[in-house]
């Protein structure tokens, strides 16, 4: 039977309604990147209730700022139960610029979590290579928390990070803590140094030939600009990794996050529901195809 598919009514419309969350904390990560934590405005948080936000590493929310609009933002917090929702984002448009001006106490609309997730459990008993470019570390941070929450389940964990400059590197405090913990190997590099920068200069792919891991028993997760992911994939393949063991996070224009508005199509995929995370083997054919 043909239905009356009025999106203005019924379930799809319900999916488009945001819930109210209150900003609990605000932190600047770099000149144009900030991290906020949120708690649901009402309902949750009562005695015996799980007050946090449940999601899987790599998922995203649609964040609505009153009157400005809505944008997809990946979740950058710890996926362990009972913790506040955390987002890290860069001011790049009207909505994120408006959002950057909000401070604790202000309320935003949240829809989500949406999308698939990094295959963290597939990495059990394997070496895990995490490669982040710029703000691409934000969607990978929940993976790092997952790893730290059960470190002995994983083999070697190697985190490679590339950034434009030292001051634009995000989560510097966390990076220091993770490095000190000795629970993972961390390599940082920047495109342009500063007078005080004594770390690596160059692109994040430069570490791939030199790191020590078992390519045939490893999983890689990459998040960053497409061109950076492209060269990283090449470098990992040169080390002997298989395309199905290399995961990337893709980005397209996401409007509804439920596969109904069509904007985020990437070949046969809807980034919002079949992605944003894909094994490279699934998108190999269109990955470097211009304007797909």
């Amino acid at each position: 039977m043909i239905h009356n598919n009025l999106a203005g009514q019924g379930v799809v419309s319900d999916l488009m309604k945001p819930s109210l969350f209150r900003i609990e904390s605000w932190k600047r990560e770099s000149p144009d990147v900030f991290t906020m934590s949120f708690l649901p405005k009402d309902g949750m948080g009562g005695v015996g209730e799980n007050p946090g936000f449940t999601f899987l590493p790599g998922q995203f929310n649609m964040i609505y700022i009153f009157g400005l609009g809505e944008v997809p933002i990946s979740i950058s917090g710890d996926p362990a139960p009972g913790l506040p929702l955390i987002h890290t984002t860069r001011s790049v448009g009207a909505v994120t610029q408006g959002m950057s001006l909000l401070r604790p106490g202000a309320e935003v609309g949240v829809r989500g979590p949406f999308g698939n997730h990094w295959p963290v459990e597939r990495a059990w008993d394997k070496d895990l290579i995490l490669v982040a470019g710029g703000i691409g570390l934000a969607p990978l941070r929940p993976v790092i928390y997952s790893v730290l929450n059960s470190r002995n389940k994983f083999g070697k964990v190697i985190l490679l990070i590339g950034s434009k400059t030292p001051s634009e590197m995000v989560f510097r405090g966390e990076l220091r803590d993770w490095d000190r913990s000795k629970l993972m190997e961390i390599h940082l590099t920047v495109d342009r140094g500063s007078k005080s920068w004594r770390g690596s200069l160059g692109v994040v792919t430069k570490f791939v030939p030199a790191i020590s891991f078992e390519p045939e028993n490893a999983l890689a997760m990459i998040c960053g600009p497409e061109v950076m992911m492209h060269f990283t994939i090449d470098a990992l393949k040169k080390r002997g990794m298989q395309p199905e063991d290399i995961y990337v996070s893709m980005e397209r224009n996401m409007k509804c996050a439920v596969g109904y508005y069509g904007h985020c199509q990437y070949g046969p995929h809807f980034i919002c529901k079949n992605g944003p995370i894909f094994p490279y083997s699934e998108i190999e054919g269109i990955f470097r195809e211009p304007e797909v």
């Binding site: 434009k164 495109d191 692109v203 792919t205 061109v227």
Partner: peptide, 13 residues
């Protein structure tokens, strides 16, 4: 290759 990628300024806002 490294230099070309550095030139691209891929992480820029």
């Amino acid at each position: 290759e490294q230099t070309r990628l550095q030139l691209l300024n891929i992480y820029d806002n």
